[in-house]
Amino acid sequence: MKLTAANFNRFLLFKLPSAFICGVRVKEIVYNKCVVSVKHRWINQNPFKSMYFAVQAMAAELSTGALVMLHIQNSKQNIAMLVAANKSSFSKKATGRITFTCQNNNEIENAISQTISTGEGQTFWLKSIGTNEKGEAVSEMDFEWTIKLKK
């Protein structure tokens, strides 16, 4: 399956239904960037009338993980991936449409290349920044991904 925004959104419906129901959607995925959006609604709010942190984490993780999946597919290797750790910070109430963007600065390519050449697992961090409709950052989330060749 070619990894496009539409295919990822179908994937969400069948494999990650909680993210789909909460409104998480891939808007754009290209070689060096993935954009995921989610709108604050009743189904994904916390008691303080802003978006629940876990919904933000789902969208942010998808923006990083989708890029990893795209690069693994492009490598034509059988590579496993897993989140090893994450950290986050919240700077503003998340209301309205929140857009998470992950920009790849060669971390993924370097890790895949190292894994293929050495056969050893690699770890790397990717950052996703969530912004509101005014362009203000509401949260930053970092995910440590591990990859290794499947045997």
Results as ranks from 00 to 15, higher is better:
Lys2Ser: 15
Ala5Pro: 02
Ala5Leu: 06
Ala6Gly: 13
Asn7Cys: 13
Leu12Ile: 12
Leu13Pro: 00
Leu13Arg: 15
Pro17Gln: 13
Ala19Gly: 13
Ile21Phe: 14
Cys22Glu: 08
Gly23Ile: 03
Val26Lys: 00
Lys27Arg: 11
Val30Ala: 14
Tyr31Ser: 09
Cys34Asn: 03
Cys34Ile: 10
Val35Glu: 11
Ser37Trp: 00
Lys39Val: 09
Lys39Met: 10
Ile43Pro: 02
Asn44Leu: 05
Asn44Gln: 05
Pro47Ala: 10
Lys49Gln: 07
Tyr52Ser: 12
Tyr52Gly: 11
Ala57Tyr: 06
Met58Glu: 05
Ala60Met: 10
Leu62Cys: 14
Thr64Glu: 00
Leu67Pro: 06
Leu67Met: 09
Val68Leu: 08
Val68Lys: 03
Met69Thr: 12
Leu70Gln: 13
Gln73Met: 15
Gln73Trp: 07
Asn74Trp: 09
Asn74Thr: 07
Gln77Glu: 14
Leu82Ala: 15
Leu82Phe: 14
Val83Thr: 07
Asn86Cys: 10
Lys87Pro: 01
Ser88Trp: 08
Ser91Asp: 04
Lys92Cys: 08
Lys92Val: 05
Thr95Trp: 00
Ile98Gly: 14
Thr101Asp: 01
Thr101His: 02
Cys102Pro: 03
Cys102Lys: 00
Asn104Lys: 11
Asn105Leu: 02
Glu109Thr: 00
Asn110Lys: 14
Ile112Ser: 07
Ser113Arg: 10
Ile116Gly: 05
